[in-house]
């Protein structure tokens, strides 16, 4: 496996250069999506609908970046084995490297997308408190969770080509079931369980609280985040390793 560390680096390098090489503004594309989404949602929900959320733009962007990282990686992961079909059919590589390279590219994009977040917090929010040091934990949780989900989706898509389409359709309602745009306290009590069943709620909350409220999140939120991350990774790993020997017959 460590023999293939170089391959991992080269795949990430390829992902990033091929994506940006032929575009004029290059890496700026990474920032475009979160910036536009923030502008649109801030206008719609803060100005038109007049959500009572204070510093809506900070509230939204800190959560949306986590969501965007997760969504982007998992959508890419659906196709990653099929796209490398020629390779998988002809030569041995540890196939998990293909999935990991997608997530690592996502982490780098996420890193760039933090730049607008910093500006937004400095301009519209209350600045940073010491609790931002805690942010490393939610980032690890969400990365681990994303790897797990990516492994599952990558395996399934090899056997059923339309898994990606189903997943894409699912992402929109899933995003709206995650308190990214709206505050938790507007949810009627009887629907609260829907949110609490959603693993992304905990991960998003875990990342947002230190930025938006300047405090460490609730211990139960941290614990559940860690648990869903580990559970996702374990299930993803089991699914992937059981499926990977058959990839060659389907790609």
């Amino acid at each position: 496996m460590c023999r293939f560390g170089g391959l991992l680096i080269n795949l990430v390098y390829r992902d990033l250069t091929v994506r940006y090489k032929r575009s004029v503004i290059g890496f700026m594309w990474t920032l475009l999506n979160p910036v536009i989404m923030t502008a649109v949602y801030t206008m719609v929900f803060s100005t038109i609908f007049r959500f009572p959320t204070q510093d809506f733009i900070v509230y939204f962007l800190s959560a949306y970046l986590i969501w965007h990282f997760f969504a982007q990686c998992t959508v890419e992961a659906c196709k990653c084995i099929l796209n490398a079909g020629a390779l998988v059919k002809k030569i041995y590589i540890p196939k998990i490297v293909l999935v990991l390279s997608v997530v690592i590219s996502g982490i780098i994009n996420f890193g760039f997308a933090l730049i607008p977040l910093i500006f937004v917090v400095l301009i519209f929010g209350g600045g940073f408190s010491i609790s931002i040091l805690f942010l490393i934990a939610p980032v690890i949780f969400v990365v681990v969770f994303t790897v797990g989900v990516s492994l599952i989706l990558a395996s399934l898509t090899v056997f059923f080509l339309d898994v990606g389409e189903f997943y894409n359709a699912l992402l929109m309602p899933w995003m709206f079931l995650t308190p990214i745009i709206y505050p938790m306290d507007i949810i009627p009590k009887e629907y609260l369980f829907l949110i609490k069943l959603n693993p992304m709620y905990y991960l998003v909350e875990c990342f947002r609280t230190p930025i938006y409220q300047g405090t460490i999140p609730n211990i139960s939120v941290i614990a559940i985040s860690a648990l869903v991350a580990i559970a996702s990774l374990v299930i993803g790993y089991i699914v992937f390793t059981r499926a990977e020997d058959d990839f060659v017959y389907y790609v």
């Binding site: 023999r3 560390g5 170089g6 680096i9 080269n10 390829r14 250069t17 020629a86 390779l87 030569i91």
Partner: peptide, 25 residues
Amino acid sequence: GAGFDPELTGRENTYLNGTILGCTN
């Protein structure tokens, strides 16, 4: 040339293909 990518240069592809074959960079 398994895994050659048309958008990368010959040099970049050499690294990519070499690591696919199990070499280090």
